[in-house]
Computed example of a mutant assay.
Amino acid sequence: MICRSNLSIILGLLFFSCTQTKEKNKEDITPIIASETKTYFSTKHLLDVDELHSLFEKERIKIVDFRKPEVYEKSHIQGAINIWRSDIEDISYPYKGMMATKEHIEALFSSLGIKNEDTLVLYDDQGACDAARLWWVLKNYDFESVKLLNGGLEAWKKIGGPINDEPVVLTPSEFTLPANSSFKLWIGKEEILEIVSSEGKEIILDTRNMDEFSGKRQKNGAQKAGRIPKSILIDWAEAIDYQGTQKFKPFHQLETIYSRMNASKHDLVITYCHSGVRSAHTTFVLTELLGYKNVKNYDGSWVEWSYFDDLPFKQDSITIIKK
């Protein structure tokens, strides 16, 4: 009787130990799996090519090819209209690349037949870098019905999406942006100068490449080479799977890349590049895909900053001017 009781106790302890070990292993593995499969913070402004294929030719969808006109004319997604950087630029400045006025955007969209109730699907062939600039402009004017096509033209081709070189017949409309503009993702040089001169925790994120950041390379449009003081560098292109899908990298990879900022999701992060295009892309990644709450893109970026001789800058290398 005693032996049978002892045997029962021993078997019970072994079962309990195995169960605990399994549960512990499950607890150890779960966070790893979760980190690898977690989806983006938001996909409100992101569209997969398969989703576009199912929505194709819907009345309230306007596809926008955001590439140079001469490239668009050779081939584009069937039915896409064309907009390029110069179409959304304010030319009243002595330097290029500044965001167009609300009135300018309204007139442009009206001429292209875009209606207030339309959803815009934006694409390019540069990892959404160019298209993200238009997304950023529209976000500042509080127009929310806009999505970036993940993977762009290359991803569309891979699923056999229709492409042609036919011009689109445009019927003018009366497009209007919301009455009040929040400029929620915008920041100007005066505010940045205050931050550069302070001892605050704000992050100034240069999204160009290392040659531009160091001052080795000076791109056309800039008056000098270098960077804004206190800047740290994360090249915008790190966010894209250029060797594979041409799409945004998965959440956990993006988290790892931007953890190099050593910033919380609530810290102020100011992005900039040469003319506010690549930094608009990084602004999309940080706010939409990763959930950072306080990100501002410097509209004028290095083109504007380098124009003013009284603004401070840093430079590490001998400059090679690139046209």
Score class of each variant (00 low, 15 high):
I2R: 13
I2N: 12
N6T: 08
N6I: 15
F16I: 15
T21E: 07
A34I: 11
H45M: 04
D48Y: 09
D50H: 14
L52S: 09
F56S: 01
K68I: 03
K68A: 13
K74I: 13
Q78Y: 00
I81F: 03
S86R: 14
K102P: 12
E103W: 01
H104L: 07
H104N: 11
A107Q: 13
I114H: 08
E117G: 02
Y141W: 02
L149S: 00
K157W: 01
K158I: 01
V169G: 04
S173H: 11
F175E: 05
P178R: 02
F183I: 03
G188M: 01
E191V: 01
I192A: 03
V196Q: 10
V196R: 08
V196D: 08
R208K: 11
S214P: 00
Q218E: 14
K219M: 10
Q223W: 09
G226T: 03
R227N: 05
I228N: 04
D235A: 02
D241V: 04
Q246K: 13
K247S: 02
P250K: 11
Q253E: 14
I257Q: 09
I257Y: 08
Y258C: 06
S259M: 00
A263V: 03
S264H: 06
D267T: 04
V269I: 14
I270L: 04
T271I: 09
Y272I: 03
F284K: 09
V285H: 07
K296T: 01
D299H: 08
D310R: 13
P312C: 07
I320C: 07
